[in-house]
Design a protein around this nucleic acid. Structure first.
Lengths: 261, 261
DNA sequence: CGGTTATTTGACCGACTTCAACTGCAGTGG
DNA sequence: CCACTGCAGTTGAAGTCGGTCAAATAACCG
């Protein structure tokens, strides 16, 4: 399950990516969802990242112990942060959706302490930390957006702790689905109510800190509530209010508003 | 400025310590542990924070829904980040020790989504976000140190997820103790091998996502291993290597080195 | 000293894990 | 076309970990 490919460090300077308007890229939609940022600033970031690299499902995009010197831009696909214990137990720490920009500041930490795994085929951009920092001075809104990305990811981790620590598996599963649904809405994935859902049951189990077998049974219970329809890698929400209630979901931690200082 | 930095826990006040250089404050020791920072920069931060405020044990220093507009400097005492669910279940997300500086950037998120609770009597400083940002321009090392504080706290949350999700309660408890021991070492608390340990069993349970009753039994098991001696609000490490092994503890996530970019 | 809070213990029960087997499906190669 | 393989999902039985209810100390506080 872990074939490492493509160590990073290869960022070819290629002809600028063609696009009609910067705000129409996933990255643009994501950053603009929380920060008042100009298409020009987004273009600066995307040009810096250059042509995206491709990873196969199951590939390690980055591994624990690697030196972090680049931010990662999720263009397409589904990935996750995970940690793997010595005896093989895996815990998924968060899911990375198109539009997410991670590790924009993490080079300050030196070696990374977690893994980034591609769960499906992924296309990602990379932007060197040093260049980002320099560019941030001339484009304060961009710097602000990247910092806010990091802070929101932190808020998601905090909520993740609750999910794993204090919710029943049924609540936690419902909560996870609510979070994913809303995050996909932000970047405009899943129009028409059909959300792509590539997580295997084992992935979900590793996200919630339970076994895949138990997750399977709980998933059956969740289906029985009639709130969601989850099969064939597609998620359909059948009864959103009831799903929210089941999860005791409260969306504050996603900080989707632009009401900040 | 400030003061005596004193171990947390209920202890008699010590006579004021003569401070010859800013690096001898808790905040200074903490920031200097990960960032090459000058005493002058630390003094700038502490002057901005001014005279510390005092909180009684159990007090809410900040509550979910509050607008975040200030960084918080832990000068003395023990506090925690927590979230509380509608039905009263509490989850502790991280512990705040003297020297920790939190929320230095969080005003970007607007309303906070967690609580900061004083677990013992606490003395904390406050620095307005706006002033901090402005000062950061003139004192890049200080800005770097504050950012690194935030990133390290993020790393601690990630590890916390593992603790709650994938470790047995015995492993998780041992792991929590290892983390606290090392973090106290960083700021020079617990000289002589006697670490102040003010957490109640209920606090520990809420940190690990279990009930206090179960924690009590697991604590008995941990004591039976002979690796720690934990009573009367004091922690003594009896067999550090074996405690580390029991917890499968690996210190990378604390990022204590200064080997960053 | 009395009243609260923290710790400890017992008995019982439910959630979750473990081990094991079986299904369905997609690819791959003969 | 079909056997073979591998993986994701499903189900069952049995056991363990952790939760709940209840109550008895022990420690703390005014």
């Amino acid at each position: 399950m872990t074939d490492v490919q493509e160590p990073f460090g290869r960022r070819p300077a290629l002809p600028p990516v063609q696009r009609t308007s910067a705000a129409e890229t996933v990255i643009g939609r994501k950053l603009a969802s929380h920060t008042e940022i100009s298409p020009a600033d987004i273009a600066v970031l995307e040009d810096l990242a250059g042509e995206p690299a491709t990873f196969k499902p199951g590939a390690m995009i980055a591994a624990s112990g690697d030196r972090v010197d680049q931010a990662t831009l999720m263009i397409e696909g589904l990935a996750c942060r995970s940690k793997i214990l010595a005896d093989g137990r895996r815990q998924i720490l968060s899911l990375l959706l198109p539009g997410d920009v991670i590790d924009a500041h993490a080079s300050l930490l030196g070696e990374r302490d977690d893994n980034i795994e591609a769960l499906t085929a992924c296309r990602i951009g990379r932007a060197s930390q040093g260049a980002l920092t320099a560019i941030g001075l001339a484009h304060p809104r961009l710097a602000e957006a990247l910092l806010r990305e990091a802070l929101i990811e932190g808020a998601i981790w905090r909520e993740w702790v609750i999910n794993v620590g204090r919710r029943s598996t049924l609540e936690a599963l419902a909560h996870l689905i609510c979070e994913l649904k809303l995050r996909m809405d932000i970047v405009g994935i899943g129009a028409g109510g059909d959300y792509p859902f590539a997580l295997t049951q084992e992935d979900m189990a590793d996200a919630l800190g339970v076994t895949a077998i138990h997750l399977n049974r709980v998933l059956k219970m969740l289906r029985a509530t009639g709130t969601v329809d989850l099969q064939a890698k597609t998620l359909k929400i059948r009864d959103w209010p009831r799903l929210l209630a089941l999860a005791h979901f409260s969306d504050g931690y996603l900080h989707r508003d632009r009401s900040a200082a």
